[in-house]
């Protein structure tokens, strides 16, 4: 089966100096530096990595909310990289974004009804149909119809996130990028929202790219997991497999940081030394070598490529992927 979305060597570089009329920019922050992956229809791809590794930028570049610097985006077999203006606008009906911060992503001067029906208005849905759709959306995200005339500030964080989700679903999208949709919420509400997202996926046949830094959240919701470090993918594979037997030392370190339910269970905690290197001036060779416990000479000079490390398609970008199995 053809994948719904193919991302090929996607790059997004931001200039460091201000874009003034007279200065030419030389230095670039390589927020996303060549990532490639496929997303199959109906699956959930979890995208993890620590803060600043470029996962949100990757999500926004895929939706072309920021123009990618390089690379190719193929959606339903069609190259959408060069889509601009009206063509891209039309395509937005099929790809939506759920935002991280439910406080910042809703216009404070609009009522809930206005917020949720705006996408339908933009794409010229009729008034009666809009009303019907609004009621249905409120129902599926667990809000009441008398919330319609209220303003965002009258709601709690979890409720606001539901409003944001309803807005994203207003156009019946196929692909939804969830940009840390629960990280701004209380732990008690995170589970509610995640369960809601799972229910909606089933009901509306959605495909998710689920961005998060919380590994337990990702584990719960994802079919496949992609791990990012400093703008690059280091490992990708089936969620169960990646969690069971991570092949990249960075993934191993990340997973060792997840708290275990059983406090008596022995586990080895891998603590990374040093800070995240600057994405403006990333290390040569393998970007992770400055912090990798297994780094050797080749890691400092040669950049590892993504290699298949298991029969089921798990891939990792490490020279020693086969050896460092724990």
């Amino acid at each position: 089966m053809k994948p719904l979305l193919e991302v090929k060597n996607l790059k997004k570089h931001f200039p460091i100096n201000g874009t003034s009329l007279f200065s030419r920019n030389k230095d670039m922050v390589k927020a996303v530096d060549g990532i490639s992956f496929n997303v199959k229809a109906g699956e959930t791809l979890g995208l993890v990595g620590e803060s600043g590794c470029g996962k949100s930028t990757a999500g926004r570049s895929i939706l072309k909310l920021t123009e990618p610097t390089e690379g190719q985006l193929i959606y339903k077999g069609e190259d959408i990289t060069a889509f601009r203006g009206e063509r891209m606008r039309k395509l937005r009906q099929e790809m939506q974004l759920i935002f991280q911060d439910p406080y910042a992503s809703l216009n404070p001067r609009k009522t809930i009804e206005q917020i949720i029906t705006e996408p339908m208005k933009i794409f010229q849905m009729e008034k009666a149909a809009r009303k019907q759709k609004l009621d249905r959306l409120l129902d599926v995200v667990g809000l009441s119809s008398y919330h319609k005339s209220r303003y965002p500030h009258e709601f709690s964080g979890g409720q606001r996130q539901r409003i944001g989700i309803a807005r994203s679903l207003a156009l019946d999208p196929e692909l939804v990028i969830c940009d840390e949709p629960v990280s701004a919420l209380d732990v008690s509400i995170q589970a509610q929202v995640i369960n809601l997202l799972e229910e909606l996926q089933e009901e509306f046949k959605l495909t998710y790219i689920f961005i998060a830094h919380d590994l337990s959240v990702i584990h719960h919701i994802s079919d496949r997991v992609a791990v990012m470090y400093l703008g690059e993918l280091v490992e990708i594979g089936d969620a169960a497999e990646v969690y069971q037997s991570p092949k990249h030392p960075y993934t191993q370190a990340l997973l060792s940081a997840v708290p275990k339910v059983n406090p008596h269970q022995e586990k080895e905690r891998i603590i990374l030394k040093g800070d995240l290197p600057s994405p403006a001036n990333p290390p040569k060779g393998c970007k992770f070598h400055t912090r990798c416990p297994f780094a050797e000479a080749i890691c400092r000079s040669e950049k590892p490529t993504m290699k298949q490390v298991s029969l089921t398609g798990q891939m990792a970008a490490c020279h020693f992927a086969k050896e460092v199995v724990n």
Binding site: R60, L65, R92, Q93, Q96, D101
Partner: peptide
């Protein structure tokens, strides 16, 4: 720079809107 502006863009709103 607010996120709700990006949200408006992502639901296909035109610049004037």
């Amino acid at each position: 720079e607010n996120e709700y502006i990006e949200a408006a863009k992502s639901i296909g709103a035109k610049h004037g809107r």
